[in-house]
Amino acid sequence: MSWRAALLSDTPRSRQEAKLGALYRGWLRFRRNRLAVLGLLIVVALVVVAAFAPWIATHDPYAQNLAQRLLPPGSAGHWLGTDEFGRDIFSRLVYGARITLYIVVLVALIAAPIGLLVGTAAGYLGGWVDAALMRLTDVFLAFPSLILALAFVAALGPGIENAVIAIALTSWPPYARIARAETLTIRNSDYIAAARLQGAGTGRILVRHVMPLCVSSLTVRVTLDMAGIILTAAGLGFLGLGAQPPMAEWGAMVSSGRRYILDQWWVATIPGLAIFVVSLAFNLLGDGLRDVLDPRQKT
């Protein structure tokens, strides 16, 4: 039996095989969406570039060379040009991928579990727990996220870690909302009732029965929000509250390039393009994941 037939088999022989089979069927559905695959490829490329930055970059991203400042793209040795200090823009983009990925992953790892926990607890327990948690969520939702992040960073002090904390603190409420809505639709279902009859406690039901059903819609939403996170991080960097110079953060690079935008357009445009492409890729990926993970479309 080939590995493919084994994965698609109706009679898996272990839990792992069943899980792998379900994953493989998901991948087959995902693969039909060309744009989503393109998005996935770009995201994978971002990860590879970030992981192997020292080998991919042609120059030291922090090495200044004032003799070669503001070279246009296509110059010898600097094929995306140089910035106002003569630093190689390509190398800075490559190292910037690390920072972008760092921010995105960290924000997702902080915000999604908080939202999941708050949302499922509120939805399942109901009553005053629901009221208290949802009013707290409303307080956070009442502010535009960039403004709130600005306030947090202003209080915590500028820097990449504080930017991550600030963005995470402002991005969990929508996840809590989604998780709560999802929980409300399943809390009265018979399989939750069956788990209660078997004697499962509230914690066990939340973690093992409710959360797995919320994770898929949350994954989709987080992936779609990745673009927003990148933009918020870039916005904070642009305002000087995120990554500090000389760190090669894409938003900060756009910010420092804006002084030369009329005569040396590439200094701001190239990191801007990188932000655009990666944001778009996360959006395409999220769309594709929604097609795969939406349980209502599953046959």
Binding site: R15, D190, Y191, L213
Partner: peptide, 10 residues
């Protein structure tokens, strides 16, 4: 409606 859609029979 009485079986968890993400849990195998096992």
């Amino acid at each position: 409606a009485s079986l968890h859609p993400r849990h195998t029979v096992d």
